[in-house]
Amino acid sequence: MKRLSRYRRHKAAAPLLLVIALLAIGTTFSVASATVKQSPTTFARSAAIDEGKQLFLKGCSSCHGLNAEGGAIAPSLIGVGAASVDFQVGTGRMPMADMSTQAMRKAPVYNAEQTSALAAYVASLAPGPAIPEDSVLNYERDGNTAEGGELFRNNCAMCHNFAGQGGALTQGKYAPTLMGVEPKHIYEALITGPQSMPVFSDKTITPAEKLSIIKWIKAAEKEPNLGGASLGRVGPVTEGLLGWILGLGLLIGVAVWLATKAR
């Protein structure tokens, strides 16, 4: 120590100390910053959760509670999972415009980034169904249309109609049309069971079968109207209406014309 303290007042001591200090700070900083680079998602996720929480507090907490614990008019969101949020917010059902019967599909209020932030926040509260990855959703490759049709008629047609056009439920509730719904949202609806819909767990309908159903729905969407105007694909009600109005209407018109000409 004596030797060190002998050079304490040396001319070079101050600059040397400065260099050492700078080196130490630089090394510490580079080590610290390197750790952040090693797991960037944790950082982003916590940022997304924070952003989601802010969005939640502004847009959702008045009904769902400050900690998503639910309230008198809205359910708890703890454990509903990211898939549920992605479905409800991504299809514009949440935030809800009209609380009378059920959430309607409308233009989404939040953009994709905000939706995933909200989903991240809700998912952080408790584990729940996750948003399916794009790689999982390759229904074109992994689905079977005919099998999907059979599954659809067994599990979905009783509410959503034979062609996925939707149908009425009790007390003003309804099963919406499935035409034009994104595959991701169909999948999420199956695993989360929004509103009156039951949950179709992977035990009831396997992921592969879910993809088959999606493939069938997409085929029905693209299905050309082979017999002429589809009349809404809702069955005999519109057919009878057209038969009376256009069919018999035209014939009565002709009959009146024939009877008039004879005079």
Binding site: R153, F162, A168, V234, P236
Partner: peptide, 25 residues
Amino acid sequence: ASINPIWLYGPYTPGQISAGSQPDW
């Protein structure tokens, strides 16, 4: 105008039913 597009309904099985099943008028 299309009438009774049977290919959309699929084959009959007693376990299945479609929403909005109506008879002819």
